[in-house]
Amino acid sequence: MQFVRAIVRPEKKDEVLENLSSGGFNAATVVDVVGRGKQKGIRMGDIYYDEIPKTLILVAIEDADTDKIVDIILRTAKTGTDGNFGDGKIFISPVEEAYTISKGTKGL
C-alpha cells in the first residue's frame, strides 16, 4: 500500500477530486496548508510572500494504482500547457497496514 500526498493549488482542488472520483479513487482526505517552494515564495516589490496557501490531498492506494493516480493528479493540477511555478508536488510513501474502523478489519 502507498500513501500519495499531493500539494495542489486550492482552486484546483475540486477538479482534482472530481477526476479522482471518476477515475475510481473516491476516498480522499483534504487539508488546507501553507508553504513555499524552491522559488522561496512570491516577491511583490519589497514584500515576500512565503506562506502561500495550498491544498494537501491524501490518498491511500494499492501499489498497482500508483501510476494511474499520479497521472490523474499531474494532468489535472497542471496550469496552462507547460505548467507554472506553484502548481504543486506529489509525494509517495509506503504504508504498512491499514484498518477500517467501522468493521475493525485490515485493508483499505
Binding site: M1, F3, A60, S93, P94, V95, E96, E97, A98, Y99, T100, I101, S102, K103, L108
Partner: peptide, 13 residues
C-alpha cells in the same frame, strides 16, 4: 452503530 464513516487507520514506517 452507524458503521460507514467511522474512519481509517494507517501505519507507516
Amino acid at each position: 452503530e452507524r458503521g460507514a464513516g467511522d474512519g481509517k487507520i494507517f501505519v507507516t514506517p
